[in-house]
């Protein structure tokens, strides 16, 4: 629908995919190549998710620009 929805689901989707990858690797019995490619995908997801959750300074932005306030 809107970009905010896609952003939200993208976090949840990534978590779900990562969980599936981990479960598959934990089951074992995979070809090494398959395991490696899953592991790489998982590592990338971990990085992306950590980036989404990173502990950064709080950013504060005013909703109203100068123009907005003058026009009020």
């Amino acid at each position: 629908m809107s970009p905010r929805r896609s952003r939200k689901t993208s976090f949840e989707d990534k978590m779900a995919r990562l969980e599936a990858i981990v479960e598959e690797l934990e089951k074992g019995g995979l070809e090494l190549e398959k395991a490696i490619s899953l592991f790489k995908e998982g590592t990338k997801l971990v990085e992306e998710l950590s980036e989404m959750l990173r502990d950064a300074e709080i950013e504060i932005e005013n909703l109203y620009s100068e123009d907005d306030l003058n026009g009020d």
């Binding site: 976090f11 978590m15 990562l18 969980e19 990858i21 981990v22 690797l25 934990e26 074992g28 995979l30 090494l32 395991a35 592991f39 998982g42 590592t43 971990v46 998710l49 950590s50 959750l53 502990d55």
Partner: peptide, 22 residues
């Protein structure tokens, strides 16, 4: 936010551990 970070950390650990075992 804390809960999500922990969840990601745990999955990361499981991922690495599973790969180690393989």
């Amino acid at each position: 936010k804390f809960a999500a970070r922990d969840a990601v950390e745990l999955l990361k650990f499981r991922l690495v551990n599973a790969m180690r075992n393989i």
